[in-house]
Structures are given as structure tokens and as C-alpha cells.
Amino acid sequence: MDVFMKGLSKAKEGVVAAAEKTKQGVAEAAGKTKEGVLYVGSKTKEGVVHGVATVAEKTKEQVTNVGGAVVTGVTAVAQKTVEGAGSIAAATGFVKKDQLGKNEEGAPQEGILEDMPVDPDNEAYEMPSEEGYQDYEPEA
């Protein structure tokens, strides 16, 4: 019985440690998101679009440190934060509304985080759909 109880105690310690790591990862992701939003706020009209992409990228980098179902929630929060940063930029006159959601080359930025393969159960990952990809044929 002692062996059984000791095993359960060790398992509990492992769960607590994993929860603490997840909590730490979420806190880091939130900190990076805040950094990115402050970065966007300090940019001029020309830099705002690039700044919004930076927020998304920093958040995406930190999301990889967070495991399990938390990833889905962090990704949703990050996307809403990026959308909010863009709205703030438009409201303050840093950028025109028609410039939001495009990178410096004018290509749409939507789907940055949505296409990231995420499995809350950590069982399997699927690649994003290939609808947006084109076949590449090298020139002879």
C-alpha cells in the first residue's frame, strides 16, 4: 500500500510541476504579447503594419512553449490582441483601416495563427491545408 501511495504522490508532483510550467509559459506569452502591443503603439504610420505582424510573430513563438489545451486559448487571445492593436492603430490615425491585415508588401496577414497546427491532446499534428499553395516548377 505504501508503494501505491508513494507512486500516487510522485504522479501528483509531476502534474503540479507540469501545471506550473504551463502557467509560466502562458505568463511569458502574455508578456511578449504586451511587449508587441507597446511596440505597435510606438510606431509611426509606416511601421504600424509591420508592428502588428511582430506582435503576432512574438506571440506565436511563445505559444510553442505552452502545451496542451492552453495553446488553443493563448492563440485565440493573441489573435484578438493583434486585431485590437490594429483597431487602436486605425482609431489613433497611425494607419488607414484599409491597410490593416496586410503586410508591407500588401499581402493579407489573416491566418497567421489560424494555420498553425495545434492539437490540445498532444496526440497528432496535421499540416495546414494546401489550398493556398501553388506547385513550383523550376525553369529549365
Rank of each mutant, 00 (worst) to 15 (best):
M1D: 00
M1H: 00
M5E: 00
K6Q: 02
K6A: 11
K6D: 03
K6V: 02
G7E: 04
G7V: 14
G7Q: 07
L8D: 00
S9I: 10
S9C: 09
A11V: 15
K12V: 15
E13I: 06
A17Y: 02
A18G: 02
E20W: 08
K21W: 08
K21N: 03
T22L: 06
K23A: 03
K23R: 08
Q24L: 08
Q24S: 08
A27L: 14
A27C: 10
A27Y: 13
E28F: 09
E28A: 09
T33P: 00
T33C: 03
K34Y: 05
K34P: 00
K34L: 07
E35D: 09
G36D: 02
V40F: 13
G41L: 01
T44N: 01
K45Y: 04
K45I: 13
E46V: 07
E46T: 07
V49N: 03
H50M: 14
V52Q: 01
V55D: 00
A56R: 10
E57W: 06
K58H: 11
T59E: 00
E61W: 14
E61C: 07
E61F: 05
N65H: 04
N65Q: 09
G67Q: 10
G67M: 14
G67A: 10
A69D: 03
A69M: 04
T72G: 12
G73T: 14
V74A: 08
T75M: 12
A76P: 01
A76L: 10
A76I: 14
A76W: 14
V77Y: 07
V77H: 01
A78P: 02
T81P: 02
T81K: 02
V82L: 13
V82Y: 09
V82Q: 07
V82S: 04
V82A: 10
E83C: 03
G86W: 15
G86I: 14
G86D: 04
S87N: 12
S87Q: 13
I88G: 04
A91P: 03
A91R: 05
G93C: 03
F94G: 03
F94V: 03
F94K: 03
V95T: 08
K96Y: 15
Q99E: 08
L100N: 03
G101H: 09
G101L: 08
N103L: 08
N103T: 09
N103Q: 09
G106N: 05
G106I: 11
P108L: 08
E110A: 08
I112M: 07
L113N: 01
L113R: 09
L113I: 14
D115G: 15
D115C: 05
M116V: 01
V118A: 09
V118P: 13
D119Y: 03
D119R: 01
P120A: 12
P120R: 10
P120K: 07
N122Q: 08
E123P: 08
E123W: 11
E123K: 09
A124K: 13
Y125D: 11
P128K: 04
S129V: 08
S129R: 04
S129W: 05
E130T: 07
G132D: 11
Y136Q: 09
P138I: 04
E139A: 09
E139F: 12
